[in-house]
């Protein structure tokens, strides 16, 4: 199983029955495939609805997800305008957001919207989501393609939000972030504390309940 699938499978375990969840574009959209059958969540789509679901068959007119891709809707869903959508997001009505990151640091800062001089897609709804969701989980590959660290003492890229990330899930490890400190809570079986430390650009505590990645 490749790294992204392993991350998505682990991230699915973060979701509780009844949660209102907003998933970022890219890797996070794979997470629902790995949900246990007895867990029912409601997906919020920032472009204006609750009840996002998979598309079965032909595209449905005027129904796209936050990436502009045709999608489906589950029974009981609801449409609304963008002001209500972001009132839900900013107002603490979304239980969990899981989104990708370029960098995360030990202070819980996230950078994921801009690489100066290279890529400036814009923040879209990410700043509001990270500011307003009750729980913020970042899923990303542990290191960049060039091997450089993505988990840092201090982000170097422009920030999406300050001190908002609760947990980071990578293919190598799961870290919790609190009080300006990373704590390792789960470790992949092929990693050791030493190998992980080399791949991680910030010091971390080790939970006394350290487990293998579930």
């Amino acid at each position: 199983m490749d790294a992204k699938k392993r991350i998505a499978r682990r991230a699915a375990k973060e979701l509780m029955d009844g949660d209102i969840v907003n998933l970022g574009i890219g890797l996070p959209t794979q997470i629902p495939h790995y949900l246990d059958h007895n867990i029912e969540i409601t997906l919020q789509s920032e472009n204006g609805f609750l009840g996002l679901g998979p598309l079965h068959g032909e595209p449905i007119q005027d129904l796209v997800n936050a990436g502009g891709i045709p999608c489906g809707m589950v029974p009981g869903g609801a449409f609304f305008d963008s002001a209500l959508s972001f009132a839900l997001i900013r107002g603490g009505h979304v239980d969990v957001t899981i989104l990708g990151g370029l960098q995360v640091d030990q202070h819980g800062n996230l950078a994921n919207w801009k690489v100066p001089g290279k890529m400036i897609p814009g923040m879209g709804g990410a700043m509001d989501l990270v500011t307003g969701a009750r729980r913020v989980i970042v899923v990303m590959e542990h290191c960049a393609k060039d091997g450089s660290h993505k988990i840092l003492e201090q982000c170097t890229l422009p920030l999406t939000a300050v001190s908002k990330v609760h947990r980071v899930i990578t293919e190598c490890a799961v870290f919790d972030i609190a009080n300006d400190q990373l704590t390792l809570v789960e470790l992949a079986q092929e990693e050791t504390i030493e190998s992980l430390a080399k791949k991680t650009g910030a010091p971390f505590l080790i939970s006394k309940d350290l487990k293998p990645i579930s």
Binding site: N109, M127, D128, P158, L159, T160, A161, V162, S163
Partner: peptide, 8 residues
């Protein structure tokens, strides 16, 4: 509160 601590 959105944008606090960022270049926004």
């Amino acid at each position: 509160p959105t944008g606090i601590g960022t270049e926004v």
